[in-house]
Design a protein around this nucleic acid. Structure first.
Lengths: 193, 193
DNA sequence: TTCTTATTGAAATGAACGTTTCAAAATTAA
DNA sequence: TTAATTTTGAAACGTTCATTTCAATAAGAA
């Protein structure tokens, strides 16, 4: 019967992601989003409800983009060491390509909104659970393969790695020296062996 | 001759710090600051010039508060191990006392504003230099005392520790389990020995 | 064609934004 | 007391904010 949604939703999310990533949630205005998406103001509200709701979709979009990268990288890893290195390598690549010094949108959003917006807090809790589960899985396999030591449980190492990734993303905002960053990553991973 | 500034500047900065810390720069309105400081709107502009300028003073105030804590803690340390532990212990204490899940204001501001505001970028560069110099100094002493290994230079370890602290502060926003965090810190420091 | 629904454009909403203005009140040194 | 200067209160500045409204247009299904 009806006319159907004509614009490409993913394309719009992509554009909105760029703006939110660059300016943060509070720094982004509805006008910024209208300009970036070339979508009508009313269409944005029709399709996404509100600025916050659009932002939540953007977060999920950004998250699933990273998850896909992880999955793809992990599928190509031969063992736990390579798997962990893949994770850090992806972060490093993003840092080195991020000429605007935007950092990781999820880390940024965590620091901006967790204490202000319950829906964001809940998103971040799930994101942490997911990340730690993934890391724990890799570490556990590495410990079974006797590649990683058992000084700590896989879960404890997972939290350590999760924290280290966040630190790396924060450090990478100002420091883009590849050699220094690679050395930093090596130091982080040394404790596992 | 004239009437003299009557309000306590540090007290005003303290109040302004609380608001900015809780809501971030973009999330804080001038009205919020008027309410928090009980200072007149015009007095704020008379005394601080602009919102951004007040924020820069707040950042310095917050930074020097932490520097004092560091200096005080370091003065009581007997060796490099204790010195480093003191630094991380201070972060841990802040995390556990931060019931609002605000995180570290400097980390938050770095993620919110470095790519938007040159004066903030410059502040953060100096902050990083200062932190790394302090950490490098401690590590170097530890290496001289043969307490820390020499697998990496003091400067390399300093960047690693700086990154780890930022990661810890980000992790501490959602995770307040003291046992887990202490374990995380131990894992971070293990590589030094 | 007709019905149904989506998109568009443009304007308007009222509230909040950071900042300015200015006269009145307060305070202190001369 | 007088002169100089800061603080205060309150209002106003023009702009931008997120959101709503609504009539006009477009398009696929019946």
């Amino acid at each position: 019967m009806p006319k159907v949604e004509t614009f490409n939703r993913n394309q719009v999310l992509q554009k909105a992601t760029e703006v939110f990533h660059k300016k943060g949630y509070n720094g982004t205005s509805m006008q910024d989003l209208v300009d970036a998406t070339s979508l009508n103001r009313s269409s944005i509200y029709n399709s996404f409800g509100s600025k916050l709701n659009l932002f939540l979709e953007v977060l999920s979009y950004y998250q699933s983009f990273h998850n896909n990268n992880f999955s793809q990288g992990l599928a190509q890893s031969y063992n736990a060491t390579e798997a962990i290195e893949t994770i850090f390598e992806l972060s490093l690549t993003e840092i080195l390509n991020d000429n605007d010094r935007k950092g990781c949108m999820i880390v940024n959003c965590k620091s901006e909104m967790v204490n202000q917006e319950p829906s964001i807090k809940s998103f971040m809790e799930k994101n942490q659970d997911r990340m730690i589960a993934m890391l724990e899985d890799i570490v556990y396999k590495g410990q079974m393969e006797k590649i990683f030591n058992q000084d700590q449980t896989a879960n404890q190492y997972a939290l350590y790695l999760f924290s280290s990734i966040q630190g790396l993303r924060m450090t990478g905002i100002l420091n883009k020296n590849e050699k220094e960053l690679r050395n930093l990553i090596n130091t982080v991973l040394k404790v596992l062996h």
